[in-house]
Every structure is written in C-alpha cells, then in structure tokens.
Amino acid sequence: MNFDFDTPVNRRGTNSYKWDSDHVGDDVLPMWVADMDFRTAPAIIDALRTRVEHGVFGYVTVPESYYDAVISWFARRHGWEIKRDWIQYTSGVVPAVSAIIKAMTRHGDKVVTMTPVYNCFFSSIKNNGCQVLECDLVYQDSTYVIDYDKLDHCLSQDDVKLLLLCNPHNPACRVWTRDELLRVGELCIAHGVTVVSDEIHCELVMNGNKFTPFASISQELQDITITCNSPSKSFNTAGLQIANIICNNGEIQAKIDRAINDNEVCDVNPFGVEALIAAYNYGEPWLTELCQYIESNYLLVKTFIEENLPSIGVTKLEGTYLVWLDCKSLGKTSDELTRVLDDRAGVLVNSGTMYGAAGEGFIRLNIACPRSQVTEALHRMMPVLKSL
C-alpha cells in the first residue's frame, strides 16, 4: 500500500467529539461516532497547509473550480452528469436535509424513511414539525431488503410529502442496487412523493458492490430527486463542514435556498472548499486503498465473531465503515448491551435503538481505525459478551 492506515493517530486532547467527550474515559476505546481515526488524504493536507500558510481566513466565495471538481468527480466515478446550476453548497448534509424538509413540507406533513436508519433523520423530521413514518426494512440472510408492499402503503398515506432515502444505507450496510432504487422511484412517482437522497457514504463501497446515484437512473427520477452529498465521510473531513445539494428543478432550488438562508447555513469556510477540491481532484488513489483497508477490517471482525461469538450475527458490509451486529440471541436490549460493553469492556459502541425501533437487539461498531484498534476492541468485547 502507498498510504499508511496502520499507524495509530493520537486524537485525545484535540477536542475530538469521538475521543474527548466527557463520558469517554482514558481507558475507553471509542468505536461509535462515524468519523475515521485515519489521517485524511495527503493531497487534502497539502491543500489545507497551503491555505493556512496564507494566514488570512476571512469570508470566502466558492470558485468555479469547486463546481468543476464536483461535476468531474461524479461523471468520472459514477457516470452521473451534473450541471453547474444544479449545485447548492451548504455546511453539511444534516443541515441540508433539515433545510430541504423545511422547504418542501408544511407543519404536520409526513416523511417516510426506511428503518433502521441514521438517527439524525428522525430529529431533522421532527424539528421541522413533521411526522416520521417508519417503513421497516426486512432483515434476512444477514442483510436487509426492502418491503415494497409496506413502502407502497406508507407512500400512499395522506400528507406524505417526502421519502428520506439513505443510499448507501446507514446502519444497514446496504448499497442499494439500481433495480432496487428503480422500484423505489416508481412507487414515489406513482404517489407524487419527492425523494431526498442522502448519499454521504457513496464512496465507501466494497465487496464488489456498485453505488448508483438515485437521480442518475432516469430523467423521471432525476426530476423528483434532491440529492445530498459531501466528501466528509469518505475523506474524514466532517469537521471542515462542506456539503452539496443537487437538484435540477429551479422552483425547488429557490425554496431550498430560502430555507438554507432562514436556517443560516448558507456560508461555508475556506478550508471546506479547499478540501473538497483537493479530494475530488487528487484523492482517488487514497480512497481506493482506504476502502480496501476497511474491507479487510470487516473480514477480520466477521471471522473473529464467527469463531468466538457464533450466536452473534454479522450483517454483510456492502458499504459504509459501520458494522451492524445482530445480538438478539443474547437476550439483552441494545441499550443494555451498550452499557455493559462500556462498563465492563471499555468499548463504546452505538445502541441499535438510536436508529429506530427496528434497530432493537443490534449494536453498531465503527471499524474505520487501525487494525490493531479493531483487534483490541474485539478481544475486550469477547469475554463480556460470552458471559451474558
């Protein structure tokens, strides 16, 4: 490998939410918050170093090279042709999702999402005065599939305005196929529902799977889709706060722009701009090796659990760096498992119920860290889980 993912980086004392939160003790391994413990791509570090050396960090305009980088990246990697005037920048995917919900709904409207799903979906919907309509995915054969009949029923209900889609899906580890997305899109068209597709994990794809941008499938689907993406997950730059909303409908764009300004998330910082340009123009070799490393970490987890904790199910990892473990056989709630692993193993994981009622009995483990850390976490967890 040309890049070093094995050497640990000490993140304590850097005001890291993952490592320095009050409840994260000095002897605790934090395997929870979805950021990586790797240094980002050297090309990004070099671009930021150049910007720092300039020494002036005033308000920033977003240059044409920013839009060129976004357009080139998605055309090159995913065959999705984006036009310059479809792109609206903002400070993050969560603020983007919140602004879109504000723009596209009225108080009391319903927003459908397929659960278990990223916890901020729930808060973004509720904080905008809308109702969450959960459409549970079906867990079978160590993976998740969509219940299209149930989705059809949910989308057909009165006052449903949006489907909030996670593609790839966190925490279900799915990279939805083109055919699956097409069936979802056909249902949304039939019921007049707009799709908001959170595609922040789109580059973290492995095991031979292929990411398909929802809006790229057809003109019909592009016309009903608002896409949110960012390099932040793939390149570990979440703290730089940059994201894009991509939509080809000028009327919808105007509504979103108003909501972005109402929510005061219309400005971005110079480091986010420079990081995105460097990531999309020069970061691809680093990203390729990153995905290979994460896939190897996953295989380590899968093998270890199959050999030492066979009653625990390991969900197939198609995308993201978040392993979803089925612990229902242990007879404990997700919250109980999370507490006991923190108290007795010194390993901090996410409780499955953060992601909706469908997550009960599961825990989420972040494996975007050096292999030595994954190994240590597994060896800490094993005796505790065996004792339950």
Rank of each mutant, 00 (worst) to 15 (best):
A275E: 03
I44H: 08
I252R: 09
A358T: 08
K316D: 15
L309V: 10
F214N: 02
H201C: 12
L48T: 12
L187H: 02
P63H: 09
S334H: 06
L133Q: 10
P8E: 07
N366C: 10
E274W: 01
V52A: 13
Q88W: 02
N127E: 15
V24I: 13
G331F: 06
V97L: 15
N297M: 10
D158A: 14
C228A: 11
W324M: 11
R344Y: 07
K210M: 11
M114P: 02
V323T: 13
W73G: 01
A96T: 09
V132A: 09
V60W: 00
D223W: 03
I246Y: 00
G361W: 00
E203H: 12
I87P: 00
L48E: 14
Q157N: 04
F304Y: 15
C228Q: 01
E203T: 10
D46N: 12
K150N: 12
L348M: 15
V349W: 03
A259W: 01
E306Y: 06
T90F: 02
S124C: 15
R178F: 07
V175K: 01
P171D: 09
P231T: 12
D342P: 02
D27A: 10
A377M: 09
F74A: 03
T115Q: 08
I277Y: 01
T50K: 13
D342C: 06
G319A: 06
Y298D: 10
Y59L: 15
F235D: 01
M36L: 14
A368C: 11
V205I: 11
L322A: 10
T115V: 07
L165W: 13
N281I: 06
N127A: 14
F121L: 12
T177H: 09
P270F: 01
G283W: 00
E274R: 07
E295P: 05
Y298M: 12
N170W: 09
Q241P: 01
V301F: 08
E186H: 08
Y59D: 15
P168A: 07
F211N: 07
A254P: 02
S329R: 10
A190H: 13
I226F: 03
T227H: 02
C188V: 13
D159R: 13
V145R: 10
L276E: 12
D35C: 07
E134S: 14
M104S: 09
L276K: 04
L164V: 13
G13P: 05
R339E: 12
W19A: 03
E360N: 06
I189G: 00
P270H: 03
E220G: 06
C120G: 07
D35K: 06
V340N: 00
V314P: 00
A358G: 05
L162E: 13
D267I: 01
R174F: 04
G319W: 05
A34M: 14
I260P: 00
E264R: 13
G13Q: 09
V28K: 00
L287G: 05
N2E: 11
M31Y: 02
R364F: 10
D223F: 02
Q219D: 15
T212M: 10
N2D: 04
I367F: 09
P285D: 05
E251N: 08
E264Y: 09
I101A: 14
W86H: 03
A357P: 01
R12C: 12
T288W: 05
E251G: 05
P42A: 10
Y144G: 08
I71D: 01
D179M: 08
T225L: 06
V160Y: 00
K233P: 01
C188Q: 04
S232M: 14
K316E: 15
K18C: 09
L365V: 14
I363W: 02
Y59H: 14
E306H: 11
R11A: 11
